[in-house]
Simulated assay, not measured.
Amino acid sequence: MNISRRSATASLTAVALGVAGLAFSSLAQAADTIKVGVLHSLSGTMAISETVLKDTVLMAIDEINAKGGLLGKKLEPVVVDPASNWPLFA
């Protein structure tokens, strides 16, 4: 059996990519929720308008989860209050 160095390298690369792909898909399947960032000011000058936006996003996430989630996974809201401080948004 005569295998060239190039074909052996290509075969090993394909195997390595396949193993890496399986490992990545296993990690992706391990997470049973999808985190969704909710970045609205709940305090400070913008709270009067953005609190309603936060409530709307949470309501939408509840509706999506009630219908089975997204890609078979539940959405998990992560609510952060940047307190109407623009540098905190960054």
Rank of each mutant, 00 (worst) to 15 (best):
A16K: 00
A16M: 10
A16H: 03
L17R: 00
L17E: 06
L17Y: 06
L17M: 12
L17F: 13
G18P: 01
V19M: 09
A20V: 13
A20L: 15
A20Y: 15
A20I: 13
G21P: 12
G21V: 06
G21W: 06
G21T: 10
L22K: 11
L22N: 15
A23N: 11
A23G: 15
A23C: 13
A23H: 08
A23V: 15
F24Y: 13
S25D: 13
S25W: 14
S26K: 09
S26L: 15
S26G: 15
S26Q: 14
S26M: 14
L27C: 05
L27S: 06
A28K: 09
Q29I: 14
Q29T: 15
A30S: 15
A30C: 12
A30F: 14
D32K: 04
D32M: 04
D32V: 04
D32R: 00
D32C: 05
T33H: 03
T33A: 08
T33E: 11
I34W: 00
V36R: 01
V36H: 06
V36S: 06
V36L: 07
G37Q: 01
V38K: 00
V38L: 03
V38S: 00
V38P: 00
L39Y: 09
H40T: 13
H40W: 08
H40C: 03
S41Q: 09
S41Y: 12
S41V: 06
L42I: 07
L42P: 03
S43P: 12
S43F: 14
S43Y: 14
S43E: 13
G44P: 01
M46W: 13
M46K: 01
A47V: 07
A47N: 02
I48F: 04
I48S: 10
S49T: 11
S49R: 00
S49Y: 07
E50H: 02
E50L: 04
E50N: 02
E50K: 00
V52T: 10
V52C: 03
L53W: 05
L53C: 05
L53R: 00
K54M: 12
K54F: 10
T56S: 10
V57G: 01
V57S: 03
V57D: 05
V57P: 00
V57K: 00
L58K: 01
L58T: 02
M59A: 15
M59S: 11
M59T: 14
M59N: 12
M59H: 12
M59E: 14
A60Q: 10
I61W: 04
D62A: 14
D62C: 05
I64D: 03
N65A: 08
N65R: 01
N65E: 06
N65D: 06
N65L: 08
A66S: 13
K67R: 11
K67D: 15
G68E: 03
G69N: 02
G69W: 01
G69S: 06
L70Y: 14
L71A: 12
L71H: 08
G72M: 02
K73G: 04
